[in-house]
Amino acid sequence: MTKIQFFQSYHVGSEIKLTEQHQLQLVSCFEKPGENPDGILSGRAAVSTIQLKDIGPAIVKNYTRGGVIRNFNRNTYLKFSRYRCQSEYELLLFLDRLGVSVPQPIAFAYRGRFFYHAWLVTEEIQNVCTLAEFSKQNPDETRTVMQDLARQLDILVENHIHHVDLHPGNVLVDNEKNLFIIDFDKARTTPQNRHKLQKKYIRRWRRAVLKYKLPAVLNNIFNNRK
């Protein structure tokens, strides 16, 4: 069960029992600017790395805005229903139970009530690159990785989960050719049927492949699609 604790003006939630030392480490990380990842389709989120005692290496994502609004408001959100960090944290827990390969969620945090800043803490996956980068370096092995991606996308579709910004930069591949899907902060459930949801995934994915001139092997994200 997720427990939310109040610590130094931050609300920190987790299913893991976080000690005062953990919370001190996290708050220290929250108060430092994160770094934007480099690489193709690496995203806009500012992230930091941290070594949590008795837990291990972790990634701290600071939620930041995109588009034109980013020029005026970089990382403050207005609360309409749930905090974005809490929604993504709980979705990652659910996806892990379904068998989708996602980074293990550790905690989420927010500061403020109606106008708030937010953070998500997940395990750090060692020795990874994005699928976009992997496909350029290992075109033959990419076919095998794509089969695993198709299997995991089938799980998302069967459970009516729409990752609205899924592209090859939001899929990580480690040294063992294991893949992990990331950045579910805009994901949502949808009543749409399987066919319509598949089409949405394919349209967004192929737009990125075409725009960034990625290898054609990336186009086939569902086993039954050409």
Rank of each mutant, 00 (worst) to 15 (best):
R84T: 08
L41H: 09
R74D: 15
K61A: 09
G39V: 05
D185W: 08
T64E: 10
I40E: 14
F72I: 07
G39I: 05
G169K: 04
S101I: 09
Y110D: 04
R97E: 08
V164Y: 10
D54I: 05
D183T: 01
D185M: 10
E124F: 06
F80Y: 13
N170W: 02
L166Q: 03
T76Y: 11
D174K: 02
I59P: 09
G67I: 01
V157Q: 04
Q51M: 05
F184C: 10
F180C: 06
V60P: 10
A58M: 03
D165R: 02
R74P: 03
V68P: 11
F114E: 15
P57K: 02
K53F: 05
D148W: 05
D154S: 05
V102K: 01
P139F: 02
Y63E: 05
Y110R: 12
N170Y: 01
R82Q: 09
R97F: 14
A58Y: 00
I50R: 01
F184Y: 07
N170L: 02
S135D: 07
N127F: 07
L98V: 11
R44A: 12
T122K: 06
V173W: 00
S81V: 07
V173D: 01
T49L: 14
V100T: 13
E88C: 03
G112D: 09
Q104F: 12
L172R: 00
H117W: 15
F80W: 05
K61G: 14
T76M: 13
P105L: 07
C129M: 10
I59G: 08
L93C: 11
E176V: 04
N138Q: 15
R143W: 09
D183K: 03
C129R: 04
K79D: 10
D185F: 10
D140V: 10
Y63D: 15
L91M: 03
W119H: 04
T130L: 06
N178W: 01
L156A: 12
Q51Y: 08
D96N: 13
N73I: 14
R44W: 11
L120C: 12
D140T: 11
P37H: 08
A118G: 07
R151K: 12
S101Y: 07
V164A: 09
K79P: 05
P105V: 00
L156N: 05
G39K: 07
H162E: 12
N138K: 15
S87L: 13
A109W: 09
I182A: 06
V68C: 11
T76S: 09
H160K: 10
D154R: 02
G99D: 00
V102D: 01
T122V: 00
G67C: 13
Y77G: 07
V157D: 06
N62D: 02
V173R: 06
K79R: 09
A109F: 00
G169I: 15
Q147L: 05
G39T: 02
R113E: 13
N62M: 10
L95C: 03
H167G: 02
V121W: 06
L153M: 12
L172M: 01
V47Y: 08
P139H: 00
H167T: 07
